[in-house]
Design a binder for these strands. Structure first.
Lengths: 357, 357
DNA sequence: ATATTTAACGAAAACGTTTTCGTGTTAACA
DNA sequence: TGTTAACACGAAAACGTTTTCGTTAAATAT
């Protein structure tokens, strides 16, 4: 079992100093042709690679970015990670992942754990519990420590940082418009409780689209699901609730749901109730995941472009990290204004499938 | 913007030495009650937390484990990550994620990047391209450097390390037995090409189950999908192929598919061909993901318990890491045998849903 | 009163780098 | 021949810890 070789060992072996080895390997012309050759050959032979940890300590930067998300077994979030990893990798960074599991305290613990030198910056999406508590001190604390944050999807005004969001509002508007164009007269909304910002925005988009078309929203046509219960494992509850909803509103001919699961469940229930999709009922969901693609009938959805969100987030973060670098390298600390915080909006797109006409 | 405070700064501020501060914070009784109090109070006030990188360098261990997987937007893999993260977190470790994207070279690059000090050990699943090439030198190289590896799911005999695998073979046997019990006479298999070990094992299980029941496998009833093409984005190709398959074998009354997608596609195609599920055709898939749960009809599947796989893998790895520790701490290097490599088999379980009788 | 223990702290090394600043040798120059 | 440049290299500091080994002064024992 050969431990990785270090500069010191190379130096000893070749009877030169550590500094000489270091310089030779970086092709410093301070070192003679001869010894450079010799050292490089030796290093190659023993497959020398500088130790990342030592470099991190010396440079006071780790070249890794921390991802902090509520959940990983989730199409949207894993897509975002893929995006982040892609650009991180391309730009020479690693990613380290923490899961808050939608818990406030786990979010804090993870954050503090990573903030103690392990990462240069965060890309994160806020946990539900944190959104409920509206306690964002930990975000501001780490920002004050000089660790930049980029928030995506679930963002919040109380924290000053770069943000990348989906255009939830307009996505919802587009979806409802589509249903209207397709001839729907009574469009229902299946949504979550209001404290999740994205749910709220999508709801607002729904209302806006109706009003723009001269339709007065009917509160009976809005179903708010309490997602404090673990819906994934309580599917029956969800379906019963939706069934009730359909039965008490037999006039519904269109459904806009704020996520895939609600949409697919709605289709399932509707078909059990004897409705034909898309003839009797048209359905549009949000989030273009596996479910939408493979449901029968396949589901028309508002796509969020998760990968793009991840890529943009990572780029924003790394840009800022490297801007900081060149800043401190400036001879004249001429107080050049830092780049303002950016709120980047990723446009949604409607992907038409079988659940609409 | 307050940078994180260091021992040195505390020492300066309180006019003591760095060593004193360090000792006081670890409650060493070398330091007097008084100064300990003073130092701890000050440290708390300024929210001192030791710098992880410095600790890593000093201790020559990072307390983080590297995950290297082919793909992250994938129910099984993300479930495994969740499992790993759970026990990692519980046992004081972080996880850093690399994606090979099924590519041999990306796997190597990622591996080398992380192996240079960033992590203490790997949990990984081999990329398809690597399996095809059968080139495993990079795994053995990092193991030789003293970095332990735990492989899961896609494993290989050529590398000596702990392994956690799904009992693919018996899972397949169970599934086929189930179909037989349910009265199927002509059970088809939809599988992948043979080089992916899991596909091969599931195929073998299928064959075994038939033979155990005195049925001679019919090669016409086996459909091998070439997954070198990106199936997810070529659904139509897949469906056409399956449709052909059904048409030329109208006697099929049961289908065992080696993954969710194939199973769901088979159901979709079958229904278009006018077959009733489960009356005319029963279907069982492998991998219990979102698709199985939410398909209509919902799919009976062989569950792989991804989270458990992740948890076991992480435990194996950390056990080995910490065993190494205590080993080097031994006064008597009494050559105690290292723990042999473990191959842990996670049993599968059939989850019955609507696609079987 | 002297010797020895104990208490309380500091100096320094080590982990593996990079980089600044010397320093000695040789070659070029006046 | 004496002065200066250029060349090739080494020593040491720094990043932030922990830990071993002194060291000093006070307290205890003889």
């Amino acid at each position: 079992m050969k431990r990785k070789i270090t500069l010191k060992q190379i130096a000893k072996e070749l009877d030169v100093s550590v500094s000489t080895v270091s310089k030779a390997l970086s092709n410093s012309k301070e070192i003679s042709e001869d010894t450079t050759q010799k050292i490089q050959a030796f290093a190659k032979l023993y497959n020398y690679k500088p130790n990342n940890i030592a470099l991190s300590l010396k440079n006071r930067k780790t070249k890794t970015i921390g991802i902090l998300i509520p959940e990983i077994v989730h199409h949207f979030f894993s897509t975002v990670i893929r995006g982040i990893e892609r650009v991180a990798n391309r730009r020479g960074y690693n990613v380290i992942v923490g899961l808050s599991n939608e818990s406030f305290t786990k979010e804090i613990i993870n954050m503090e754990m990573l903030a103690n030198g392990s990462i240069d910056g965060f890309v994160l999406s806020i946990s539900k519990e944190t959104l409920l508590k509206q306690d964002y001190h930990h975000f501001n604390a780490t920002i004050n420590q000089g660790i930049p944050i980029v928030m995506f999807d679930r963002v919040v005004n109380e924290v000053d940082c770069d943000k990348v969001i989906v255009d939830d509002f307009n996505g919802a508007v587009k979806a409802v418009n589509k249903l209207l164009e397709n001839g729907c007269k009574n469009i229902a909304l299946i949504t979550t409780m209001d404290y999740v910002s994205v749910g709220k925005l999508r709801t607002q988009g729904y209302l806006e689209a109706l009003q723009n078309n001269g339709i007065i929203p009917d509160s009976n046509l809005i179903l708010k699901i309490d997602d404090s219960l673990d819906v994934e494992n309580n599917l029956d509850v969800l379906e019963i609730e939706i069934a009730q909803f359909f039965k008490s509103n037999p006039n519904i001919d269109g459904v806009f749901a704020v996520n895939e699961l609600y949409a697919v469940s709605a289709m399932k229930v509707a078909r059990k109730l004897g409705l034909k999709i898309p003839d009797d009922l048209q359905v549009i969901g949000f989030t273009d995941g596996v479910l939408s693609k493979h449901a029968t009938p396949s589901l028309t959805t508002v796509s969020q472009h998760g990968q793009k969100i991840g890529e943009q987030s990572a780029n924003l973060l790394i840009d800022r990290l490297e801007a900081e670098d060149s800043e401190t390298e400036q001879y004249f600390t001429n107080n050049e204004k830092k780049r303002d915080f950016i709120k980047m909006v990723i446009e949604t797109e409607i992907i038409e499938r079988e659940s609409t006409k």
